[in-house]
Amino acid sequence: MTAWTPAADASYVLGFHRGGLTQNVAGSNFMTLGVLAAFVVTGISVALFVRSRIDKRRRAGIRLLVQRLDGRPLAYVPYAEFALSVPDALSTAQAHGYALTPNPVALRYEFARGAPQTAFTGNPRAAYVAQMLDGRPLYRLAAAFEELSLPELMVLAHSRGYTVQLNQRYYEFVRYPGRP
């Protein structure tokens, strides 16, 4: 039998005897990684599920709007029945030959078939932005202090043969391919 020493007692308490610490650390790390992986997988699953539900609701809203825009000269959609964002509604309306006009007094959106889109272009800044869209393939506009809203910029871009997207700090106007 060996004599007692303070170092021997401390090593026994800390788990250094017969590989105890090595086994505990390895098992602990494996368990921590397993729990962390489970959290990551759960988070990704929830994010994908929520994203699919949002996309499904958006597609359903676009489908309902397209049903309302069936060739009538005027269509009215109350704000309460409308589940789309204004840029989605604007692009859907323009794709089907309608102009979108929000009517806050009547609490509805009004769609006019064949009318030019003028509801969002009354801002004097629109003339400057239209002048910048002179045929170049790409134009960037700083979004931080821009007084025009995204729907206004979408109408302006569409009328000049561009698409517009908000990319972090800039609105990017990209020319349609094949457009003179």
Rank of each mutant, 00 (worst) to 15 (best):
M1D: 06
M1K: 04
M1A: 05
T2N: 11
T5K: 08
P6D: 07
A10Y: 08
A10I: 10
A10K: 12
Y12C: 04
Y12E: 05
V13A: 14
H17I: 11
H17G: 09
G20N: 06
T22M: 05
V25R: 11
A26Y: 13
A26V: 15
S28R: 08
N29Q: 07
F30N: 13
F30Y: 11
L33M: 12
G34C: 01
L36F: 12
A37R: 05
V40T: 15
V41Q: 09
T42P: 00
T42D: 10
T42K: 05
T42Q: 10
I44K: 06
V46N: 08
A47H: 14
V50C: 03
V50W: 04
V50R: 12
V50H: 08
R51E: 15
S52T: 03
S52E: 11
S52V: 04
S52C: 04
I54Q: 06
R57L: 09
R57W: 04
R58M: 05
R58K: 13
R58P: 01
A60D: 10
L64C: 03
Q67S: 00
Q67F: 01
R68H: 06
L74A: 06
V77P: 01
F82H: 14
A83L: 04
L84C: 04
L84H: 02
S85L: 12
D88H: 08
A89M: 08
A89R: 03
S91L: 12
T92N: 00
T92V: 12
T92K: 01
A93S: 10
A93D: 09
Q94T: 05
Q94H: 05
A95V: 01
A95T: 06
H96G: 00
Y98Q: 04
L100V: 12
T101S: 14
P102A: 08
P104W: 10
A106F: 08
L107K: 09
R108W: 04
R108G: 02
Y109L: 15
E110G: 03
E110H: 02
E110S: 01
F111E: 03
G114V: 02
A115Q: 14
A119E: 10
A119K: 10
F120D: 02
T121W: 02
G122L: 05
G122T: 08
N123W: 07
P124L: 07
P124C: 03
P124W: 00
R125H: 11
R125K: 10
A126E: 01
Y128K: 10
A130N: 03
A130G: 09
A130R: 08
Q131P: 01
Q131I: 01
D134N: 14
D134Y: 07
D134L: 03
G135D: 08
G135H: 13
R140F: 10
A142E: 07
A142Y: 10
A142D: 15
A142H: 09
A144Q: 14
A144N: 14
A144G: 09
E146W: 04
E146S: 07
E147M: 06
E147S: 14
L148H: 02
E152N: 05
V155E: 05
S159K: 07
S159Y: 04
G161H: 09
T163R: 14
N167F: 09
Q168H: 14
R169G: 12
Y170G: 05
E172S: 01
F173Q: 03
R175C: 02
Y176N: 14
G178L: 13
